[in-house]
Design a protein around this nucleic acid. Sequence first.
DNA 1: CTAACAGATGAAGAGATGTTCATACAAGAC
DNA 2: GTCTTGTATGAACATCTCTTCATCTGTTAG
Lengths: 123, 123
Amino acid sequence: MLPAMGHGVDGRVARTRLDLAAAKSVATTLQALATPSRLLILGRLREGPATVGELAEAAQMEQSAVSHQLRLLRNLGLVDGVRQGRSIVYSLYDNHVAQLLDEAIYHAEHLRLGAPDRPAAGE
Amino acid sequence: MLPAMGHGVDGRVARTRLDLAAAKSVATTLQALATPSRLLILGRLREGPATVGELAEAAQMEQSAVSHQLRLLRNLGLVDGVRQGRSIVYSLYDNHVAQLLDEAIYHAEHLRLGAPDRPAAGE
DNA sequence: CTAACAGATGAAGAGATGTTCATACAAGAC
DNA sequence: GTCTTGTATGAACATCTCTTCATCTGTTAG
């Protein structure tokens, strides 16, 4: 009862050894989720579409900073923005993004339970 | 047909808005998966326990570099290493790690299908 | 037209990150 | 004990990342 082979959420199995190219690709995408600011933005987007201003408000950061991060997320295909009047409304690109986000949050929070975070405390 | 609310792999739902603390926590963990070298290491461990030397071989990196990354992964609670003679055998800490890895790879690779990665090519 | 609002973008700087090099530590071989 | 193998660790350095500031583009109001 120790599945060394990875098994996905619905039966899919990842059996091919991760090669360098794949690792780079995955790393690039995961890095998009590996920052508090972007997670806050995506977290807000998970609740529904929002303008840049609303995202800045939700993430408590400057408009410019949000815009920079949105560009990154856009280039990676994680979000999409459409103009609506003066505003631009952003939303998660598709369900893969939403799922990845949810699963990342779920697992990450569970993993933190046993994670000291700080190297050593003893002395 | 547009689930704004996130839904996890087996029904669990992430409904609480991600606050800054949670975002930081998740980001920290995800960052561990957001680098090619660490993904290669974890990818190898997904196939079963391995010594530092084997990991260095699999990831094509120097022993020292592997050791540094292993410390990081250890501190985050993603891997665990036990001494066996002269070697130290590492393995994924638990199934959460394996699952997170699998799902990250799965989603990330699917997302890359529509991701240009490079800003603009025209000219 | 001009003014105001909403975002995007480039440059620059502070900080974080990952690798390498040299060295230290631990365990077994002799 | 010494030597060799396997791993950890610290310092240094190059690189990348994220934010801020100033400015520019695009849209609507007057």
